[in-house]
């Protein structure tokens, strides 16, 4: 323009274009990684899974290694852990995690719920993890109650069908619970 207006003081500086190239390349890689992350969860094709080494460490670094399996493949039964802790004076304390009455607010309850749900999540896969999870729970519960020993039981709360409710039964009917002993732990073992 032959007669340019004086540059406005608040006018943004003209940015070049060169920086857009590496940023665009990163954007394309990032989107590719976001796609491969959930797509590589089994069952997945070998081709997709072969892309994991290219994006896996990056996804771990930026905390985007997620499958977004919300209530998928389908809503499942809840996993709870009940315990009976023996204190040093011989008295026992019973309880369950998660516990909506004592773990407030709701998010705090949900954090504990996710801990017990992770037991079910490791029923398959690496066989080392589930015993470590259970042991850590036993140790923490002993610490919380000052217990000398503790017995843990896994309680699976099955989901009732619609027919179950129409028959007049409740969601917390004892028939819906399946118990599995997780073991007895001594504080001295920790």
């Amino acid at each position: 323009m032959s007669d340019s207006a004086p540059p406005p003081e608040d006018s943004p500086p003209r940015s070049g274009w060169w920086w857009k190239i590496p940023v665009s390349l990163w954007v394309m890689y990032h989107i590719f990684a976001m796609f491969i992350g959930p797509a590589s969860i089994p069952p997945a094709s070998p081709t997709v899974q072969s892309c994991w080494p290219v994006v896996g460490p990056y996804l771990q670094l930026v905390y985007m290694n997620h499958g977004y399996h919300f209530f998928a493949p389908q809503p499942g039964p809840s996993t709870l852990v009940s315990y009976e802790a023996t204190l040093s004076d011989g008295t026992t304390v019973s309880g369950q995690i998660p516990d909506l009455k004592h773990q407030v607010p709701r998010l705090y309850y949900h954090r504990h719920f996710m801990l017990t749900e992770s037991i079910a999540g490791h029923d398959s896969g690496d066989p080392r993890i589930k015993p470590m999870l259970v042991r850590a729970m036993a140790r923490q519960l002993c610490r919380e109650h000052g217990a000398t020993s503790i017995v843990l039981t896994r309680r699976t709360h099955l989901l009732p069908s619609m027919q179950w409710c129409r028959a007049g039964k409740t969601l917390d009917d004892p028939e819906l619970y399946e118990d599995e002993p997780l073991g007895r732990f001594e504080w001295a073992d920790f």
């Binding site: 771990q60 470590m132 999870l133 850590a136 923490q140």
Partner: peptide
């Protein structure tokens, strides 16, 4: 010594990184 000790978390690491 809590719910998730370091050994437990590191054993669950994916791609060698937590």
């Amino acid at each position: 010594n809590g719910w998730q000790d370091p050994l437990l978390i590191r054993s669950q690491a994916v791609s060698g990184s937590t």
